[in-house]
Amino acid sequence: MTSLLVATCVAAVSLATASAALAQAAPAAAAAPTISYGPAIPGICVLSLEGAVGNSTVGKYVQTRMTQIGTQVQAELTAEQTAINSAAKALDAQKGTLDQGSFDKQAADLQLRANAYQRKAQLRDREMQATQQKALGRVSQELDPVVRAAFQQSKCSLLLQRDALVIANPQMDITGAVVTGLNARITQFAFDREHLDQA
Rank of each mutant, 00 (worst) to 15 (best):
L15C: 08
L15K: 14
L15D: 13
A16Q: 10
T17A: 15
A20N: 12
L22Y: 07
L22N: 02
A23V: 00
Q24N: 09
A25I: 04
A25N: 02
A26T: 12
A28S: 10
A28V: 13
A29Y: 01
A31M: 03
I35V: 15
I35S: 06
Y37W: 11
G38W: 01
P39K: 04
P39H: 08
P39E: 08
P39M: 10
P39F: 08
A40M: 02
A40G: 07
A40W: 03
A40T: 00
I41H: 12
I41G: 13
G43L: 05
G43P: 04
I44W: 08
I44R: 12
I44N: 10
C45I: 02
L47V: 00
L47A: 10
L47Q: 04
S48L: 02
S48A: 07
S48I: 02
L49H: 08
E50W: 03
E50H: 15
E50L: 09
G51H: 01
V53M: 05
S56Y: 02
T57E: 13
T57N: 13
V58S: 05
V58F: 14
V58A: 09
Y61T: 04
V62M: 03
V62N: 01
T64E: 15
T64G: 15
R65W: 00
M66V: 10
M66K: 10
Q68V: 05
Q68Y: 06
Q68K: 13
I69P: 04
I69K: 05
G70D: 05
T71Q: 11
V73F: 13
Q74A: 14
A75G: 03
A75L: 10
E76I: 11
E76F: 06
E76A: 05
A79C: 01
E80I: 13
E80A: 13
I84R: 03
N85W: 09
S86K: 12
A87L: 03
A87D: 10
A88E: 07
K89R: 02
K89I: 01
K89W: 00
A90Y: 04
L91I: 05
D92A: 15
D92T: 12
A93F: 00
Q94T: 01
K95E: 11
K95F: 07
G96I: 04
T97G: 01
T97L: 06
Q100T: 15
Q100G: 08
G101Q: 14
